[in-house]
Every structure is written in C-alpha cells, then in structure tokens.
Design a protein around this nucleic acid. Structure first.
Lengths: 128, 128
DNA sequence: CCAACATATGAATCTTGACTCATCTATCGT
DNA sequence: ACGATAGATGAGTCAAGATTCATATGTTGG
C-alpha cells in the first residue's frame, strides 16, 4: 500500500501560504522509502525499545543462555521472559537451539550488537 | 536504584536444579550495565520505534523542514506531527530553530542517522 | 492594536503491548 | 510409563502512548 504523495494531496491540513519550501517537500516526499520498509525499521526499533528486552540482549551479548538462566539474571518470572524471547525470536534478533530440557538463546545477527553499541554511545554522550 | 544481582536473590522463580550454567549467570549478572543506562538505551530505541517518528526522521535526514512541510509530507494533521516532534526533541534526536512564524527542525546527532542506516540494512537483509 | 497564520499543548479517546496466571507440551530420569 | 522440570502460550488485566479535538501562544502584516 505505497502512496505516491505529492504536495497537493488535499487530505492533510497544510499551510495556506507557501510554507517554507514547497519544492523541497516534493523532493523529500519522493525520496521517502517505501511504506513497507519504514514499517519494518520502526518495528525493529520498537522491539529494541523495551527495558526487559534490552536487558535480555545485553545478557546474551555476553553468553549463550537458557531461559532459566535469563530468568535468574533478570529477576522476573519465567513466563514474562519467554514472552519477550518470543518477540525477539519473531524479529529474528535472537536464535534458539534446544539442548535436552533446556533451550539456549543467542544473538542472531551482528547488526544487533552494533545497534546497541551505537545506542549506548549516544546516551552516554548525552549524559556526559 | 542500582541492584546488585546475584544468583541467590530469591525474588524470582528460578530453576530448582542447577539450570545450565550457574557460574555464567553470576558473570553475566555482574557484567550488566547499570540500570540507568539500560533504561536510557531502551528509551532511545522506543522513540525510534514508531512509524510516524521514523518517517519524520527519514524526511529530516534529507533536509531541514518546518512543521508545516512535515505535515504535508506525512499527510497527517499538524497536532499529531507537533506531538511527535516534541517526543523527538525531548529525546535530543532533533533540534529546532525558529525562523519567523516557522520552526525549522533538523537531526540533532550523527548517531541517529547511523542508527537508522544500520536498522534499514538489517531489515533489508532479512527481506532479501 | 488586530486579524491571520504557524506551532504547541492539555484533555480525552482508543490502541498497543507488557506482565500475570493457568495450562499445555516436551524431555529427562527412574 | 510416570513424575518432575524447562519452556511455550493463550486469555485477561492494566498501563503506556499515539492520535484527535479544542484551544493557547507567538509572530507577522496591515
């Protein structure tokens, strides 16, 4: 459902006067990525944007861990952890493999560690 | 409110048997960043994890824009855009400067463009 | 100063999503 | 096969947050 957006759509309340840069609006509009990609990027960040899940990822960054280890590390109940692991699995951010009664989780993608590293850098600069 | 977390906290239901790697749990626990940093990183990603805000950032990545330009580009009402710009401003992700009746917004930090680039890479690989 | 317009913001609404509880499946040891 | 444990999952609850509506603030031109 990709919308071709031009300046005179009429479906939005826009400046009556010529705004600031009507030409720029056109350029920027046509340079926008397709809706599907925007949606997926937002989804990725949404998954990373949760306290519990960030903690899980920080933990998995150090070591492959089973659910029950994570439960202990995070100090929360097993169901909550499993639910969040599912979100991370669905987003292809973590991977799981079975070993006996346990299921071992690890980071799936190198981009993720890099994203978290960059994010941490950003907040640390802000605090400095 | 930084919690020293060790394996025998007792406030979580954890494996009765020795889980998988009790020693690793200890190591990972003590390597966890302080709560404040985790919270801030999660908050940063949460702000990036919204469809509207991602579109705003993609637009600002191309050019400095006033609210009314953004309203036209996104095709949504001015109030919604302003509210989201406030969230982005509070997170120090965008910056604003006033020019006459208009307020011009731009990306505040180089990390942000990099984060979005990495995020896009990740989703594009997944789709490929 | 006044009218018109650009932007900001508070309150209300409605959706999304995190956590809990109960339960289900799978695997191991006996 | 049975009991016990690890993990997954659906339903329900509750809080956070995105959008809308109405209105306030601030700026420009007359």
């Amino acid at each position: 459902m990709l919308e071709e957006r031009t300046m005179d759509d009429g479906n939005a309340d826009k400046c009556q006067t010529a705004c600031f840069h009507p030409e720029v609006v056109g350029q920027v509009s046509s340079a926008m990525p397709v809706e599907r990609e925007l949606q997926e990027v937002a989804q990725l960040f949404k998954v990373l944007g949760d306290h519990t899940r960030i903690r899980i990822l920080h933990a998995l960054y150090r070591s492959e861990l089973c659910v029950c280890d994570l439960t202990a590390i995070l100090g929360m109940n097993q169901s909550a952890v499993s639910h969040q692991l599912r979100v991370l699995r669905d987003a292809r951010i973590v991977r799981s493999r079975k070993q006996g009664k346990n299921v071992l989780y690890s980071l799936d993608d190198t981009h993720i560690a890099e994203l978290i590293r960059l994010g941490s850098e950003h907040v640390q600069e802000g605090t400095a």
